[in-house]
Amino acid sequence: MILVTDSSALVALAACDSVALLQAKRMGLVSHIAPRMRQITESPIFISEGLVATVLELAGELDQLP
């Protein structure tokens, strides 16, 4: 378990999760990342709508915006 108390660290963590999801999709480990991005946006971790849109666009899933 990771405890992060700095808000800028939370933003960095969300960005890293997004990049990891893109890599996982490219490697064939997951078929869709939109559901996982939805989980991130519904969590207490802040992630900007722009980052979500960019990640989903890169994944070819922009039509599945959470």
Rank of each mutant, 00 (worst) to 15 (best):
R36C: 05
G28H: 05
V30C: 07
S8L: 13
I33C: 01
A24L: 12
S31K: 04
L13D: 02
Q23M: 11
D6Q: 06
S7P: 06
I33S: 00
A24E: 13
L22Y: 09
M37F: 01
A14P: 01
A24H: 10
S31M: 03
M37E: 00
R38M: 04
S18Q: 08
S18L: 09
C16H: 15
A15R: 11
A20M: 13
S31H: 02
S18N: 10
P35T: 05
L13R: 04
A14L: 01
R36N: 10
V30N: 09
Q39E: 11
A20T: 13
A24I: 05
I33N: 02
G28V: 02
A15I: 13
A12V: 10
S31I: 04
I33T: 02
I33Q: 01
S8H: 11
M37W: 02
A14I: 00
R26T: 10
M27Q: 05
D17E: 13
L10T: 11
S18R: 09
S8P: 06
I40P: 10
R26N: 14
C16R: 15
K25G: 06
Q39D: 12
G28M: 00
I33W: 00
L21Q: 07
M27F: 00
Q23V: 12
L21C: 08
A14E: 01
A34D: 03
I40F: 04
V19N: 03
A15S: 12
R38N: 04
V11N: 07
H32L: 02
A9E: 15
L13W: 05
L29G: 13
Q23H: 09
I33Y: 00
V19T: 08
V19M: 04
R26L: 14
H32I: 00
L22A: 09
Q23Y: 10
A12E: 15
R26K: 15
D6T: 03
M37D: 01
S18P: 11
S7L: 06
S18E: 12
I40W: 03
P35E: 05
R26D: 12
S31G: 04
I33K: 00
S8A: 14
A34K: 02
D17L: 10
R36T: 11
V19Y: 00
V11L: 08
M37S: 01
H32A: 03
V30Q: 14
A12T: 14
H32D: 02
R36Y: 11
S18V: 12
G28D: 05
S31C: 03
L21H: 07
L22M: 08
V19E: 06
A12D: 14
A24S: 13
M37K: 00
